[in-house]
Design a protein around this nucleic acid. Sequence first.
DNA 1: CTTGACGTTGACGTAAACGTAAAGCACGAT
DNA 2: ATCGTGCTTTACGTTTACGTCAACGTCAAG
Lengths: 131, 131
Amino acid sequence: MTTPDGHPTWTIAQLADEFEITHRTIRHYEELGLITPERRGTVRVFHRRDRTRLALILRGKRIGFPLDEIRTIIDMYDEQPGEVGQLHYLLEQIAERRVELEQRRADIEQTLRELAVVEERCHADLRTLRR
Amino acid sequence: MTTPDGHPTWTIAQLADEFEITHRTIRHYEELGLITPERRGTVRVFHRRDRTRLALILRGKRIGFPLDEIRTIIDMYDEQPGEVGQLHYLLEQIAERRVELEQRRADIEQTLRELAVVEERCHADLRTLRR
DNA sequence: CTTGACGTTGACGTAAACGTAAAGCACGAT
DNA sequence: ATCGTGCTTTACGTTTACGTCAACGTCAAG
C-alpha cells in the first residue's frame, strides 16, 4: 500500500503480521504514545516512521527495557536540534542509557561464560558415563 | 553470623541490606522456589548457597529474564550429574539460553552504536550553536 | 515485665503489559 | 441486500513482580 505521493504505508494487520505481535499490542503502544499512526477517518495508517519506531520498541523489549524507558530512548532518535539546555539534557540521558546497557552486556557475558562451564561439565559427565 | 560448624550464615535483613532489596522481595523468591533457606523453628537462616543464588537471580533480572526463566537457568548450575537423558536435556537448555543471550547482546550493541550516533549529532549541534 | 527490634504469616493492592470478549462500522463481493 | 473481512472502540480479565498493611511470635535490654 502506498499513499498518492508514493510513500509506502501499512495497515495494523500487516505490521502485526510482520513483527509477529497482535494488533492489541500495537494499539497498546499507541495508547502509551510510543507510536502515533495517521488517522484516515477512523482507520489507522502506518508510515515508515511508525514501522521504524515499532522495530525499535521491540528491540528495546528484547533488551529488557520497560516501555516507559523505551519511549525516552526512541524519542532521542527523533529529537530536533533544540537549544543548549535541551542538548545537554539529551547527552545526560544518553550517558545514563549507556551505563545501563553496558551493565547489561557485562551481565550477559558473565552468564555466557558460566553457561560454557556448565556445558563443559555436562560433556565431561557424558564421557564418563560412556565407559 | 556463623553456624557451630563454622559456615557463615545470614539473616533476611542482612541480605536485603547487602543487595538493596526488600525482605518482601526475598520472601517472594522463596515462594517461587528460587531460594530455599533453612528454617530454624520459624526463622529463616540463609547459607552461602542462598546468597549465591540470590546474586544470580538479581543478575538474571538485570539482564531482563522473567523469574520463571531465571529459575531454570540457576537450577542448571546446581544440576547433579544424573543420567544421559537428563544431560542431553540440560545441554539443550543451555543452547537455548545461549541463543537468547546472544540475541540480547546483539540488540544491546546495536543500540549502543546508535546512541553513539545520536551523541555525535548532539555535539555537532552544540558546536554549531556556539557560533 | 513491658518495650523495642527483628522476625513471621496472611492477605489485599498495584503497576506494567498486554489478552480477550463484545459490539459495532465500512466496504467489496456474491 | 446481505455476507464476510477487516477495522474500530469499550471495557473487564490476567500474569508478573512485588508493595503494603495488619497482626502476631520471640528474645534481649532496661
